[in-house]
C-alpha cells in the first residue's frame, strides 16, 4: 500500500457557509481513510435517543445495521442491539457518508460490515453481515455496492 506526502492548502471561498475539506489523492487507501475519519468528526459517533430520554452514544463504525421492525427502530452494533426512538429516516440523515447504504425504507446497512454476498434463488441480493446477520436487498443495489467497493460512495 502506497503512502503519499500530504500537502495542505487554504482556499478562500465566500460562497460557502461552512468549512469544507476536500481530500484529493491518487487512490482511496488506508491513509486517505484515516484522514477522512479524522475530519469527519460528526460521523464518528451517533447519538441514539431511547425511551425514557436517555441518549445512547455509539461509534458509527461499530454499527452493523439500522432497521425498523413492528414499528420499533433498532440499531445493531457489534455486541448489542439498541432500541431507539429515532426513525430510520432521521438516522439516515445523520449518516451522510461512508459505507452506509439504505437498502429499503426500513433498513440501512453498513457495507464495511458485509462478510459475504450471494444471489438468492428468488432473485434478491443476499448480504451476510457480521454477527451472523443476513439481509436481503433488491438486485438494483448490486451496482451501487460494486461502486462503493471500488472506492465510490454507497449513496
Amino acid at each position: 500500500m502506497s503512502s503519499y506526502d500530504v500537502s495542505v492548502r487554504f482556499r478562500e471561498d465566500s460562497t460557502l457557509d461552512k468549512i469544507e475539506v476536500l481530500i484529493s489523492a491518487p487512490e482511496k487507501n488506508a491513509q486517505v481513510e484515516d484522514l477522512l475519519a479524522h475530519f469527519s468528526e460528526k460521523e464518528k459517533y451517533l447519538d441514539l435517543p431511547t425511551e425514557g430520554g436517555r441518549i445512547f452514544r455509539v461509534r458509527t463504525d461499530s454499527i452493523i445495521r439500522i432497521y425498523s421492525q413492528n414499528r420499533s427502530n433498532y440499531v445493531c452494533v457489534s455486541d448489542e442491539t439498541i432500541r431507539t426512538t429515532a426513525s430510520v429516516n432521521e438516522l439516515s440523515q445523520k449518516l451522510d457518508a461512508g459505507g452506509f447504504l439504505r437498502i429499503s425504507r426500513f433498513e440501512i446497512i453498513n457495507l464495511e460490515k458485509a462478510v459475504h454476498f450471494d444471489f438468492s434463488i428468488a432473485g434478491q441480493l443476499k448480504i451476510r453481515l457480521e454477527e451472523d446477520q443476513t439481509v436481503y436487498a433488491s438486485r438494483r443495489y448490486i451496482s451501487v455496492i460494486r461502486n462503493y467497493l471500488k472506492g465510490g460512495e454507497a449513496k
Binding site: F117, D118, F119, G123, L125, I142, I145, L149
Partner: peptide, 11 residues
C-alpha cells in the same frame, strides 16, 4: 446476477 455477485465478493 450470480456472476455479478461473485465479482462483488472478489472485489
Amino acid at each position: 446476477h450470480k456472476r455479478e455477485v461473485r465479482q462483488l465478493n472478489e472485489i
